[in-house]
Design a binder for these strands. Structure first.
Length: 433
RNA sequence: GGCGCUAUCGUCUAGCCUGAUCUAGGACGUCACCCUCUCACGGUGAAGACACGGGUUUAAAUCCCGUUAGCGCUACCA
């Protein structure tokens, strides 16, 4: 335990929070919690042109939804301009930096001292660089805003950050920042650089890979538990074969030592599977709560009771919440029409037509369809009486109710649909309505 | 181009540090079978990898060198 652990997630509000950012935030959070430390936030809005409030709002929303709460109030870099400028002028006064005329103002640049510099990355081990290969570093842009490096160093010191856990894309930037820590006379934090998340084709994540913002996964019906579990396993793993983790288990088991060094491809299929696993492991009332939260549409006509039964009926076959509505479409609306090839196959079978007619009569004798067992008993017994296999009537009935060849168990389904709807749909298939 | 990082099944990974227990383990996906009214769930099983080339060693997925490939940095973006 290192009680003084302080880590941070420092997004820039120049775009939506994507899965790479989520993973970085998650690892920071996990490390803080596992060490009894603090997880902090900082808004890196030092790019005046590209920063937007809507992105900031979305990032904050996403972090909250995931359960990655920050422990202290955060600040904006744009509110600390004088601090960055003052510190830069001090380097100027010491002759360590110089001014350069640029568009619309004067920039301040840091003279890179040529030397060898190395550090121990917590993921990669010893890393060495030759700074004579670096160009001088802009500290303050000509618009008066700090560059990423300058603000980052000053802020990490101000926030007393003990460990910087960030993407591998910053590995080559780290020596520059270390140089800055040195001239300021400060001790640099420890660094852990995470492998990058690539698209399914192995190329860097971009618009080409479709929607990769956290918000879009949320809209597709992924739950926080599924996202976190999947992302935790991208670039991190333990001995043993456990795949399913709760948030608490992740906190307990997380260690920087076990972070992978290689870039990982994002696999939508495995995420979906993982999400489905979490949907199944939720207790029933939690599951129902997620469903009604996801489908919080006051205009829907279906009764809460029916909605609940439907959600439960489809639970084992959905991987995301949005699949529920797609798969259960025939619960909400009567099928418009039946695929004609399958319908013809059934209706050209004369005995089957008679059996369906007869089934309607038998079914009508039941007072209601509340008990799936009763419908099943009735159906199987009548099929027996005709000397046919139960499935030979079950499949046509399923088709009549759903216009599909796959569905949950027929009798459970009938119970949800209700007697009236079932009878009318069978008649509809027969062309009687 | 220069510099840096990385390299185990199609994908995510365990094993590598501390060489022999690896005829390389698990998961997703795929396929087959079981369960079964279909599908899904669940269960069982199959196919499937140490990038390549040199070393070191009695012994290398594990250590060293090189090649190749991928990614990153090389911005008054972060």
């Amino acid at each position: 335990m290192e009680p003084s652990v302080r880590v941070r997630f420092a997004p820039s509000p120049t775009g939506y929070l994507h899965i790479g950012g989520v993973r970085t935030a998650l690892f920071n959070f996990l490390y803080a919690r596992s060490q009894g430390g603090k997880f902090l936030l900082r808004m890196e809005d030092s790019d005046r042109a590209r920063s937007e409030k809507k992105y900031e709002t979305e990032i904050l929303e996403s972090l909250k939804w995931l359960g990655l709460a920050w422990d202290e109030p955060f600040f904006y870099q744009s509110a600390r301009l004088e601090i960055y400028q003052k510190a830069a002028r001090e380097l100027l006064a010491k002759g360590l930096a110089y001014e350069e005329k640029g568009e619309g103002g004067i920039a301040i640049k840091f003279k890179i001292p040529p030397r060898k510099i190395g550090f121990t990355d917590l993921v990669h081990g010893e890393v060495q660089f030759d700074t004579s290969l670096f160009g001088d570093l802009v500290l303050i842009k000509s618009d008066g805003f700090p560059t990423y490096h300058w603000a980052c160093v000053l802020d990490d010191h101000e926030m007393r950050i003990s460990h910087v856990i960030r993407g591998d894309d910053h590995l080559s930037n780290t020596p520059r920042q270390q140089l800055l820590f040195e001239v300021l006379g400060w001790k640099a934090p420890k660094y852990a650089h995470l492998p990058l998340i690539l698209g399914g084709d192995g190329t860097p994540l971009s618009k080409r890979h479709g929607a990769v913002s956290l918000a879009s996964f949320r809209e597709q019906g992924f739950v926080p538990e599924g996202m976190i579990n999947y992302l935790a396993l991208l670039g991190w793993g333990v001995e043993g074969n456990q795949e399913f983790y709760t948030f608490e288990e992740l906190i307990k088991k997380f260690s920087i030592k076990r972070i992978t060094k290689t870039n990982a491809r994002f696999d939508y299929e495995k995420l979906s599977w993982m999400n489905g696993q979490h949907l199944k492991k939720l207790n029933e009332s939690d599951y129902l709560a997620r469903v009604s939260e996801f489908y919080a549409d006051p205009t829907r006509k279906i009764s809460p009771e029916k909605w609940k039964k439907t959600a439960l009926l489809f639970r084992s076959r959905i991987r995301t919440l949005s699949e529920l509505k797609e798969q259960a479409c025939y619960i909400f609306e009567e099928p418009e029409n039946y695929p004609s090839d399958i319908r013809n196959d059934f209706l050209q079978n004369k005995p089957l037509k008679r059996h369906l007619e007869a089934w309607i009569e038998e079914a009508d004798k039941l007072p209601n369809f509340l008990q799936p067992e009763e419908i099943e008993k009735m159906t199987r017994e009548t099929a027996n009486g005709w000397g046919i296999e139960a499935k030979d009537i079950i499949h046509p009935l399923r088709f009549a109710l759903t216009a599909k060849t796959v569905s949950p168990g027929l009798f459970e389904l009938m119970s949800v649909l209700g007697k009236e709807a079932c009878l009318s749909r069978v008649k509809k298939l027969l062309g009687r309505s």
